[in-house]
Amino acid sequence: MDVICAGKRSITLKINGRERSLEVRPNEILLNMLRERFNLMGSKYGCGIGECGACTVLLNGRAVLSCQILAISVAGQEITTIEGISRGASHSSHAGTAPAGTLHPAGTLHPAGTLHPLQAAFIEEGAVQCGFCTPGMIISAKALLDKNPDPNNEQIKEAIRGNMCRCTGYTNIISAVKSAAKRMLKE
């Protein structure tokens, strides 16, 4: 029988395509691990009780709330954060700290990487207001488009039902998801 683990335990998991090993406490929250241990600051802590969606990440391709999941229980699994979805990005743990000012109007983040079509569409459609919900919104939208590349408005609304935008910019967010879908279908 496996021993009951009282102190820290070593786990290995994949974060944004890179294998990572670290020691975690039994009650360490996945979101805190991502933010504090890997400096992946894109995912946000909002309500803490599973109602706002600001902490949304992909777990094995499914959108989940990283503040509702223990780091220890995703050992061996695959996490994708907002920092990991831009194309050709270095996937480094510091990718998320690039200042917004480095954005090029054409949508290039950095010579090393290109924005994901969802990220570019959010900028173009003015779907970012205060920005706090944006990483979670984009992750939920990505989970949708990965399964359903051509969603209608109702399907988009359903997919982002767990993500709150308190600037209430939902109309532009839905437009952005539609526009990104169109762009991705053409590619």
């Binding site: 009650n27 929250i29 599973g50 709330l65 503040c67 509702q68 999941i69 223990l70 220890i72």
Partner: peptide, 21 residues
């Protein structure tokens, strides 16, 4: 899933125990 349990841990209403995954 932990969607209740983690709330109890965070809000402090659950302070100890063995989390059986």
């Amino acid at each position: 899933g932990g969607s209740n349990l983690l709330v109890y841990i965070k809000e402090g209403s659950l302070k100890s125990g063995t989390l059986v995954d």
